[in-house]
Design a protein around this nucleic acid. Structure first.
Length: 478
RNA sequence: CGGGGCGUGGCUCAGCCCGGAUAGAGCGCACGGUUCGGGUCCGUGAGGUCGGCGGUUCAAAUCCGCCCGCCCCGACCA
């Protein structure tokens, strides 16, 4: 499977990424340009992401539903910014059943329009609000350049769409879902994203305000890892989503939408991975503990397997466990193989362990001997449980340390230009699109977000020197 | 869409410039043995009409034309 060494991150980060996706068995290239096949191991990871998020959505009062893949072209055209933003990347169906369609159907690039249409049918009274619906599905955006997980023509995601009676409530929802993503990223994936607001140029097509969680990858480039949009009344007006309020007055609803996609798998890979391969955060890893039996001959084998089988039964109750029963490959090969696949914890059982009632544990976040320990078979569930928590924390700590050491509080424009080559710049910004554009032209860096966490006070825009009240991150992004 | 690179067994590539007879290697795969606490070793074997179409030629993986696809860099983007 993985016979050769990975290209080191430092040598060619893109190449490292591509190799890891293929060799860790997460996904493969599909026969259609820009499309991917998510392989079972990658899909298992996505399923764990889905479960973790879905639980959080349900806990905040949301329900799931499913809307059609096809959307009438005219729907997209009802919201001006929306159609302008998406029309260049639409896949359009013009023939169905051998006949030219009266109206072309677009394969959904996102579902605000069709859901907006349905909401206008469903909403009559303030008593019908709020509507809090999420959908797990796939969408298509005809991108120029694609990369597995990061940008594919078709991708899997969830999109939440809510409608509210008041502006305040919709904004509250927008922020709640941003916080949901933020906590998911930190608590489940150990990915220390920064929550903040998108600039007007970077916001979602059709939104009044877009919130984002931005992650720093190990090449210091930024990855937008999840978004939550306050759509104002834009889509309500376009689709006539109106209701009678308590005073019997007709009002437009306030809507939000929020999404997180399979791109997040890319975030996990590029936040934690090292030159040995993938490192998966314990709470999301499809396999949390892999057991590698070690033996020389049939006699040792049966001895060892007895213990392995017993431990498997015991651990299976609590963890996602896999026993590597492959014969004909050496333990050393298996070690490397599972490290490539990012399994957070490896458990080795050999003849010596059978004798001493012990096992060897090797943690993925600390390569080599440093991460290896020998522990008793007694109380193993607790030992492993503690260790997995520790691994989660150490992954998070490491990622935070990396992120913070590559964020530079820049004082002037020269420093900004220098810094964005190998990090993020944190700077005062006046909010003008012209200053944003200048930075982009000079450095290829864009504003990533205006973080919620602001130092307060005011300063001078790093580009034009005009008064500024907010600080923003500038970085090169995926 | 602009710039660059590439398409030869499953993978990575050699061969192409300078056309010539059964198209090679390493890895992987199958079988047998050997090994097994950090990517074992040996043997045997299966597997490719060289991206597609057309042209030149006695003869094309090799030369010419068109097309298709992929990767990297840019513009666009979850």
């Amino acid at each position: 499977m993985s016979d050769e060494k990975l290209t080191p991150q430092s040598e060619n980060f893109s190449e490292w990424y591509n190799q890891i996706v293929l060799r860790a068995d997460l996904a493969d290239y599909a026969p259609v340009r820009g499309c991917m096949v998510v392989k079972p191991y990658g899909w298992a990871l996505w399923e764990n992401i889905q479960q973790a998020l879905d639980k959080r959505f349900k806990a905040t009062g949301h329900v799931n539903a499913a809307f059609p893949l096809f959307i009438p072209m005219s729907f997209l055209e009802k919201e001006k910014e929306h159609v302008e933003g998406f029309s260049p990347e639409l896949a359009v169906v013009t023939i169905g059943g051998g006949e030219t369609l009266e109206e072309p159907l677009v394969v959904r690039p996102t579902s605000e329009t069709i859901i907006g249409y349905m909401y206008s049918k469903w909403i009559r009274s303030y008593r019908d609000l709020p509507i809090l619906i999420n959908q797990w599905g796939n969408v298509v955006r005809w991108e120029m350049r694609t990369r597995l997980f990061l940008r594919t023509l078709e991708f899997y995601w969830q999109e939440g769409h809510t409608a509210h009676a008041t502006r305040e409530e919709a904004i509250e929802e927008t922020m709640r879902m941003l916080d949901t993503y933020y906590r998911f990223a930190i608590e489940e994936a150990a990915v220390p994203v920064i929550p903040g607001r998108k600039s007007q140029t970077e916001k979602f097509a059709g939104a009044e305000m877009s919130m984002t969680i931005e992650g720093m990858m190990r090449d210091t480039r930024a990855l937008q890892s999840g978004t939550s949009h306050f759509l104002g009344q834009n889509f309500a007006r376009a689709f006539d989503i109106r209701f009678l309020d308590q005073n019997n007055e007709l009002q437009y609803a306030w809507t939000t939408s929020w999404g997180l996609s399979t791109r997040f798998i890319g975030a996990i890979i590029m936040t934690h991975g090292d030159d040995q391969g993938l490192i998966l955060p314990p709470r999301l890893a499809p396999i949390q503990v892999v057991i590698v039996p070690i033996y020389r001959d049939d006699a040792e084998r049966s001895l060892v397997m007895q213990v392995v089988d017993r431990l498997e039964q015991e651990l299976r109750e609590v963890f996602r466990v896999h026993v590597d029963r492959r014969d004909g490959v050496t333990p050393g090969f298996k070690f490397n193989d599972w490290e490539m696949r990012g399994v957070p914890l490896r458990l080795e059982v050999g003849p010596k362990d059978v004798e001493k009632n012990s096992v060897a544990l090797a943690r993925r976040d600390r390569p080599g001997k440093a991460g290896k320990s020998f522990v008793s078979q007694q109380g193993l569930v607790q030992t492993i449980s503690d260790l997995l928590k520790e691994i989660h924390q150490s992954l998070l700590d490491r990622a935070i340390a990396f992120r913070d050491s590559h964020i530079h509080d820049v004082k002037d424009y020269d420093e900004l230009k220098q810094v964005v080559d190998e990090g993020w710049a944190f700077a005062w910004w006046c909010g003008s699109a012209a200053c944003e554009a200048k930075v982009k032209e000079d450095t290829k860096a864009t504003t990533r977000c205006i973080p919620l966490d602001q130092p307060g006070g005011s300063g001078k825009c790093v580009v034009c020197g005009e008064p500024a009240t907010e600080k923003v991150y500038f970085a090169r992004a995926y």
